[in-house]
């Protein structure tokens, strides 16, 4: 006899398990994997939706045009700048928040909930709020800085190519620091108290405790927070779309904004797809190199 009682019930449960995966596979397959594949294919076509002409295969032409497109290269640079600066600030600030919230004090839960608020609010909606804060004439930022004597004349924060990106980064830091702080806080709370108690017996200073216990044990949480934030920052769209639309003079145009403009403003879907594909490949290569170095 080949099939015993046990293995027969195993196969039915295996079958049941597979059945349970079907809805997830259908969704991920059609709404995620199909688009990724289709996007790669479209990169090799010229797509003109207005004329009604079916897409024509043009080989690597989209890619060779992209590499000479200074606007695309600039958007890559903007994305890298935005990502690196915002993630670094969010990490440092988030670590500070987490260390602060890790202490026990009254109303800690309320403070923790308050810190969470920026994360929960819609980015696009709060980006409009930031536009109002940054407003050159009626903005509250200029008013406060003038009163504090930090600036002497009102600044058009979003209209100035030197400050627009800074404003976008600050708004992103405001929104995303809570996320980093919470991940790090959870990491901090999983560090066993005994380690600190033992080191206190050995007369360790606060700095040594941080350097020798907190930081090394927090590394997995740090890595996770940085990974998530970096990937989110690379894809940034809503904040910049609402805040500056990519301007002034393209100084805040990130790759997602560039792709959106080429797809829906200039209706060059194939070209826009190739920009997505190329960016994606660049990220993969950087990721692979980074992993190999480690």
């Amino acid at each position: 006899m080949r099939i015993t009682d046990g293995s027969a019930s195993l196969t039915t449960s295996e079958r049941f398990g597979r059945l349970l995966l079907v809805p997830a596979i259908l969704l991920v397959g059609s709404i995620a994997f199909y688009p990724i594949l289709r996007n790669a294919i479209l990169s090799f076509y010229k797509v003109d939706i207005l004329s009604g002409i079916p897409p024509t295969f043009i080989g690597f032409k989209n890619f060779s045009t992209l590499l000479q497109d200074s606007r695309f290269l600039k958007s890559l640079g903007n994305t890298a700048y935005f990502t690196i600066v915002s993630v670094v600030i969010e990490f440092l600030l988030g670590l500070g928040f987490a260390l602060l919230l890790n202490r026990t004090f009254r109303a800690r839960n309320l403070v923790r909930a308050t810190v969470l608020i920026p994360w929960a609010l819609p980015t696009a909606v709060m980006a409009i709020g930031w536009r109002w804060i940054y407003n050159d004439v009626y903005g509250v930022l200029n008013d406060i800085l003038l009163k504090l004597g930090i600036i002497s004349t009102k600044i058009a924060w979003l209209g100035n190519p030197h400050t627009a990106m800074m404003c976008a980064i600050f708004a992103d830091v405001w929104k995303s620091t809570p996320f980093v702080a919470l991940i790090l806080l959870a990491g901090l709370q999983s560090i066993p108290r005994e380690l600190y108690e033992a080191s206190e017996l050995d007369g360790a200073t606060e700095w040594n405790k941080f350097r020798l216990i907190t930081f090394p044990l927090l590394l997995p949480s740090i890595a996770l927070a940085l990974l998530f934030r970096t990937l989110q920052a690379i894809g940034i769209f809503d904040l910049i779309w609402v805040l500056t639309g990519g301007g002034p003079a393209g100084t805040t145009e990130t790759v997602s904004i560039y792709v959106y403009n080429y797809a829906y403003r200039y209706l060059r879907l194939g070209y826009a797809s190739s920009a997505v594909t190329l960016t994606f490949l660049i990220i993969l290569v950087i990721g692979a190199l980074w992993l190999r170095r480690k």
């Binding site: 991920v28 709404i31 995620a32 994997f33 199909y34 688009p35 990724i36 289709r38 996007n39 479209l42 990937l231 989110q232 690379i234 894809g235 769209f237 790759v255 997602s256 792709v259 959106y260 797809a263 879907l269 826009a272 797809s273 997505v276 994606f280």
Partner: peptide, 15 residues
């Protein structure tokens, strides 16, 4: 899937 930026799905889903 969670790691990909949303823009990667946009054009094919639009189509």
């Amino acid at each position: 899937v969670a790691f990909f930026p949303q823009i990667i799905y946009l054009i094919p889903l639009y189509e």
